[in-house]
Amino acid sequence: MAIQAPTESYTGKIRELILGSDTQVAVGGENTLPFYGFEGNIPNGPKIAMEVFDTEPVGWADELQAVIGDVWGDPVAWAKKCESEFGADMICLQLAGTDPNGANRSPEEAVATVNAVVDAVKIPVIIYGSGNADKDSEVLKAVAEATQGKNVVIGPAVEDNYKSVAAAAMGFNAKVAGETPIDVNMAKQLNILMSNLGVPVESILVDPSTGALGYGLEYCFSVNERIKLAALTQNDNMLQSPTISNLGKEVWKAKEAKITQAEAPQWGDQKKRGIIWETLTAISVMMAGADLLIMRHPESVKLIKQTVAELMA
């Protein structure tokens, strides 16, 4: 009996988006399931954006402090370190400091930080607001205007602010990431709404929300996988945007990633525990189809890069 390799082919393809200006990075573009290189074309593979925060982190895990504690009070130094030392494909600047329930920084202050970071690195920059829908629409508008020509990504556009965030992206030629809560139809709907406003589909990334390992990962996995299946097998145009997973912040608030060895001896080596938690979360979303991973720890980034290299060898 001669067995033929049971390969399949797909009618759809993920859109390829080119991000950044100095050093450009392409995401998406694949016409097959994640790492099914034996039956399709994966021109780029998953890319990694490393997190930089606008304000000094408080209460972060010891093993993060050990590797980025020297720069985390200075977004520019932090971003440069990610670019030159950690091999980040991109920077994801998280404007947590603009949160009205936190430091409540003004859009002008945010713009100053954004400009400094965007000017300091050559790789593309993604700028995420604090998650406060009202404040984000104000902040992201100012950010889009200030970074015009840099081909940045702004986000997240959510149900409550997508009109203004999408308008900002459109007006100043930025890409926009639309975030919806772990649901295929909602992800598609937001994409349709933004397209209807006139945002070109070539400018949209889909962020279907991320649950960390042990904290809803299974839902997030299946939503990512179903988006890719719909995009590839049903040629669903509105789900063919590259997907982004904002996983770093989810992972590092899990107690398994944070808690000290003294408090949880049963969970083993603290130095590796958080890195493994982030790595396995990233492996999962990437095996499910995420095209762009937002990550925090340089060791996890290294492991994911190694994995991608092995799978695409």
Binding site: G268, D269, R273, W277, T279, L280, I283, S284, M287, L303
Partner: peptide
């Protein structure tokens, strides 16, 4: 651990590892 994770996600029935220290095994 990463290889075992990939096979856990897609279609491994058994994964044989040298190292199942708690921080890896638990994850």
């Amino acid at each position: 651990t990463v290889h075992a994770a990939v096979y856990t996600i897609k279609y491994g029935g058994i994964m044989v590892l040298k190292d199942l220290s708690p921080e890896k095994a638990y994850a």
